[in-house]
């Protein structure tokens, strides 16, 4: 049975939260985590939609540090006021 997009978003949010400050996760990492957990019950398109939910809601933001990542909103080291 297909996993609802909202549920995927919530689960991925938890993964991003745990990883914060330790490893910058990419869209692909989240996709692989969900596919590993749910196998055929989850499609790449669903994961993509769930990431969009995370970003559009402001719970996560995109980062770029030599590669794009999905992170919790925070103040970065370089930022000036």
């Amino acid at each position: 049975m297909a996993i609802p997009v909202e549920q995927l978003a919530d689960e991925m949010y938890e993964i991003v939260k745990e990883s914060a400050g330790v490893k910058k996760l990419k869209g692909g990492d989240l996709t692989k985590a969900m596919v590993a957990k749910y196998g055929d019950d989850v499609s790449r398109a669903d994961v993509k939609a769930a990431i969009r939910v995370l970003i559009d809601s402001g719970r996560c933001v995109y980062g770029y540090f030599g590669g794009s990542s999905i992170e919790l909103p925070h103040t970065e080291a370089a930022e000036n006021q």
């Binding site: 400050g21 330790v22 490893k23 910058k24 540090f65 080291a77």
Partner: peptide, 13 residues
């Protein structure tokens, strides 16, 4: 204070 150590380590190709 300024940098995340794991991220900095991982940044090096």
């Amino acid at each position: 204070n300024l940098c995340e150590i794991p991220t900095t380590v991982a940044s090096c190709p």
